[in-house]
Each structure stands twice: as C-alpha cells, then as structure tokens.
Design a protein around this nucleic acid. Structure first.
Lengths: 143, 143
DNA sequence: AGGTGATGGATAATTGTTTTCAGTAGAAAA
DNA sequence: TTTTCTACTGAAAACAATTATCCATCACCT
C-alpha cells in the first residue's frame, strides 16, 4: 500500500522528532503524495477513508499538524480563511494558486532571502520567516 | 469625532462604490486609523463600542468587509487561522508582523512585480496577485 | 419631507478546528 | 516474544470565528 523504498527514511524522520509512525499519518502523507495539487482537510479525510475507513476527522487534523512539523507537508492559506495542504516541495518555494480551478499549479522559486536581509538592516526588525503565495490563472483555465 | 478634513473624500469613496456612509463604518475606520497596529475583530468591536455602544459584532464584520473592499483597510492572515485588520498603507506594501508581541510593526516595500512578471513568462501562468507577510521580532521585543 | 432600499442590531445557525476521554497500538526494554 | 509505557486514535462534545436571518431603522435621492 505504501511505497516501500521511502518508508524507511520516512520512518526515521518520525522517530528523529519523537513521533510515532502510524498508518493514519502515512495514509495522509500518501494521499498528498499521490496528487500534487493541494487538498482541503475534508478531501484528505475522504481519500484516507478509502483505505482506512475508520479514520476520524480529528486524526486528519492531527496528522497534518505532525507532517507540517516534519516539513513533509505545507499548509496553504486561502483567502476565505480556510486552509489546504500540499506535499512539500524541494527547498523553500512558494505556491502558485489558480484562482479559477483552485489548485496549486506549481511552486515558484522566489529569492526573498536577500530582500529579507535588506529589510532587517533597514528597519532594525529581525526578519525570521515569510509567507508568500502567488495567485493567478493556470494554462488550462486560460483556454 | 471624525476628522473633518478627510470625511468628504472618504464619503465620496463610499458613494463611488455604492456604499452608504454610516457612523458604524466610520467608527471602525477611525479606530484603525488611531492605532497603526493591527487589531483583532474583538478589539475593534470593543473600541467601537466606546463611542457607539450599541454596535453589534456582526456589524464590525460587515464594516471591515466594506472597508477592505474600498482598499482603506488590509486584512492580515495569522498563522492560527484568525484574522486581524490594519489601516491600509500607501501603495502596495507588505506587513511585518512581530511574532512576540503580535503586532504589525511596519509595512515593507517589496518589489515583487518584476519577479511576478518573470514567473509569468517562465511558467505560462498569468500571475495576478500575491500575498506576502514577513514575520520577525521588533526592536522592543528584542530587548 | 417622504419613499426606498441598503444597513444595523440581536440572535441563531454554521463552519472549521480543538479538546476530552477512554481505549488502542507503536516502540523500546525485558 | 512478552511486557510496559506512553503517544496516538476515534467519537463526540466543546469551542471559536464567521455568516445568515429577521425586522426595524437610517442614509440618501428626489
């Protein structure tokens, strides 16, 4: 059910942070790995229940929190206040969300580190992190 | 109670978009103008009630929606899912939020337009808008 | 001043998320 | 393996943020 080649390193990622490697958490991860698009909590819940029918909604919330903590998954903030989740891209990248079909089209590499440093120097504020999302229209929705 | 010099142009801003210029909406705007820091809905509600005691919470929500629509106020997304609001800065700027005292320290001018265009060309995605927030530690909280 | 439709207040309803609690099952030690 | 310990799960209740409903009222156009 879960890809064998990855399970070992995934398992040690859990252990390194003192988390347990449970089927529910792996299922949530698997669901996100299988669709590079971002998914709402409810969608994830439905998909997880396809092979773990007893999984509760609260567990999905908790699993996602854990996976975000492990940098395996990224939380996406939407305008209406709801959230969705995507599998984390390589490195620090920023999601481009299609305003029509509501999917994460891809991740942009946006070199903000230098700018952050500049701001830190200019303002005296220690910039630690940033949150950036781009919104646009994907190729398919342009047609 | 409300600054007279501004009230005329504010009034016409409402009318231009077909909104009515009501004391409640002006009160919400006034509260945000008086504290450049960002405020939660509840805080705004409390402050508004200081001089308009009968104002309901729902009205605060509705007024803020209107003011955001008029670009007079900016909605800030926080990590925990809640929102706060600040008076809109001149031009398109990005809030720097202090992770300690939870205030909008200031707005950074971050030239993202050129980068957005670049991304548009590279990916074929029509980038329309972006959402950027910076998180850091303000001078006071560094002490 | 009067008419009209947008707005406001109060409250209920909804929705997204978190907590609680008792039972279960990872993971490490015996 | 078996035991032991604790983190984890499922179900339901609790919570908090936001939205909808209803009717009265007020802003504003004529």
């Amino acid at each position: 059910m879960f890809s064998v080649e990855k399970s070992k390193e995934i398992k040690s990622m859990f252990h390194d942070k003192g988390f347990k490697c449970t089927p529910q958490r792996l299922a949530v991860l698997k669901v996100l790995q299988d669709t590079s698009a971002y998914l709402s909590i409810n969608t994830i819940h439905l998909k997880v229940k396809e092979f773990l029918p007893d999984t509760g909604l609260a567990t999905v919330y908790r699993s996602l929190e854990t996976l975000v903590d492990l940098n395996l998954v990224v939380k996406v903030h939407l305008e209406d206040g709801c959230h969705s989740y995507v599998i984390a891209p390589e490195g620090h990248r920023h999601p481009i969300v299609c305003t029509d079909c509501n999917k994460v089209i891809e991740f942009a590499e946006f070199p903000l580190d230098d700018l952050s440093k500049q701001i830190s120097e200019d303002t005296g504020v220690q910039i630690k992190t940033h949150f950036l999302q781009l919104f646009g229209k994907c190729k398919e929705c342009q047609a």
